[in-house]
Structures are given as structure tokens and as C-alpha cells.
């Protein structure tokens, strides 16, 4: 198998986290994406072999989940939330603009392999609508212009800072994180942003707080 050296060992590390090996399958497939850029047939077969599954069983799982790519994802996998709240608040417009700007549609990759584009569903960030993601890192409260700006920056090789997270890294690097391998970036992105603090700030403004418990 043409998987990078050490892939099997890293997959075994994932298996070792669980009381029952098969539980490791989802993170293992994330790791395959980290190694290969998508779920390659070889990677799928290796996971199946390591867990004693048929390839039909392994493919049954990988094809169920939308994060698993069936062909190489772009180095920067761009998502635009088109779920109604984001969509109505601007996501649909951002989607149309980005699709045109990149010249690709849903689930397509730019010829240079730099970008892939996906219409994504709700990212649990509705307070921050309209939301876009680059390799799944949040880019909040986007406008058509700021969205185009993000891809232009990436194209120019400039770092893009997630609004609630680290500087956006490659698809494969992020997939390694999602597979559960520590990247040391947990402290990046700092504390809560203004929207997450909206209530706390307002409470402080109004001098409101939760009652203290009676101790004794």
C-alpha cells in the first residue's frame, strides 16, 4: 500500500484509545484524510483490514458521513453555510459570489487543487451568521467582500486568521487534529469573542448577575 510510512502505527494509536477497536473507525478515516487528502481506496482498505471489516462495511460507513471526501479535497476546503438562517442573512449571496469567484460549484475543486467548495449545513454558529469555514475553522459574520478577501489572501499565500481559532492550516493538517492528534493550538484564538460575550457584557452593564448561593 502506498500510504505514507507510519500510517498504520498512527491508526493503531487511534484504535488504542477505545475499549472496542471498531469505535476508532471515524477518527481513523479522518486520519486517512490527513495522510492522503481524501478517503483513498487504499486507506479505506487499511482501516477495514485493521478492524477486521469487509471493504463493503468500511465504505458503508465512510459514504454515510459528509466530511469524508471521495476525491482529493482542495488544500483549502471552503464551506459556506447555506442553512436558512445563515443563507438568508447573507450566506446564499456569499455562496454565489464565492462560487463565481473560484469558478467552481458545490463539491468541486479548482484545477490547481488549491480550493474545494462545499455548501455546508448549520455549523452551530448561527449567532455569528453568515458563517463560512476554511478547513472547518470558523470565519464569522462574513460579507461577500470579506469572503472573497479570504480566498484572495489564501491565494496570495497570506495567513488567514480564524475569527474563533488559529491561523487556518491545510485541509490535511486540520484533519489530523480532528483525528485526535494534538497540534498544540488549543490556546490560539484567545478568549470568547464579542458575540459570545454579548449577554455577559450586557449583564455587567445592567449590573445583573446570578444570585450567590447561601453558604453554610
Amino acid at each position: 500500500m502506498a500510504l505514507p510510512d507510519g500510517t498504520r502505527e498512527r491508526l493503531s494509536e487511534i484504535v488504542a484509545r477505545y475499549p472496542q477497536p471498531r469505535s476508532a473507525l471515524l477518527p481513523m478515516l479522518h486520519l486517512v484524510q490527513a495522510e492522503e487528502g481524501y478517503v483513498t481506496p487504499d486507506g479505506l482498505a487499511l482501516c477495514a483490514e485493521m478492524l477486521g471489516l469487509s471493504t463493503a462495511e468500511a465504505a458503508a460507513v465512510s459514504s454515510f458521513y459528509t466530511m469524508y471526501q471521495r476525491r482529493p479535497a482542495g488544500e483549502f476546503h471552503i464551506g459556506v453555510c447555506i442553512n436558512p438562517l445563515c443563507g438568508i442573512l447573507g450566506g446564499d449571496a456569499i455562496w454565489a459570489a464565492l462560487s463565481e469567484h473560484l469558478g467552481i460549484g458545490h463539491d468541486e475543486v479548482t484545477p490547481d487543487g488549491k480550493f474545494s467548495l462545499e455548501r455546508i449545513e448549520c455549523q452551530a454558529a448561527c449567532t455569528h451568521a453568515p458563517v463560512m469555514t476554511a478547513n472547518w475553522e470558523y470565519l464569522d459574520q462574513m460579507t461577500v467582500e470579506s469572503a472573497k478577501g479570504v480566498v484572495d489572501k489564501i491565494r496570495a499565500g497570506e495567513p488567514v486568521q480564524s475569527t474563533r481559532g488559529p491561523v487556518v492550516r491545510s485541509f490535511r493538517d486540520t484533519e489530523r487534529t480532528v483525528a485526535g492528534f494534538d497540534d498544540g493550538l488549543a490556546d490560539e484564538g484567545g478568549g470568547a469573542d464579542a458575540l459570545m460575550l454579548a449577554g455577559l457584557n450586557r449583564a455587567k452593564e445592567l449590573g445583573q448577575a446570578a444570585p450567590e448561593p447561601k453558604r453554610g
Binding site: 481506496p41 482498505a45 477495514a48 471489516l53 469487509s54 471493504t55 463493503a56 462495511e57 468500511a58 465504505a59 458503508a60 459514504s63 454515510f64
Partner: peptide, 21 residues
């Protein structure tokens, strides 16, 4: 005990599929 076929994909695209064996 031979999972030579499995349900693949999801939702309306769900279908019976085979593996490589």
C-alpha cells in the same frame, strides 16, 4: 456472517453496495 453487501450512502441516496473483496 459475510458482510459482502452493506447499505451505502445515506438518506434518499442510500443504496445497497458491495466492497472490493
Amino acid at each position: 456472517g459475510d458482510p459482502f453487501i452493506s447499505l451505502q450512502e445515506r438518506g434518499a441516496k442510500q443504496q445497497v453496495g458491495i466492497g472490493d473483496e
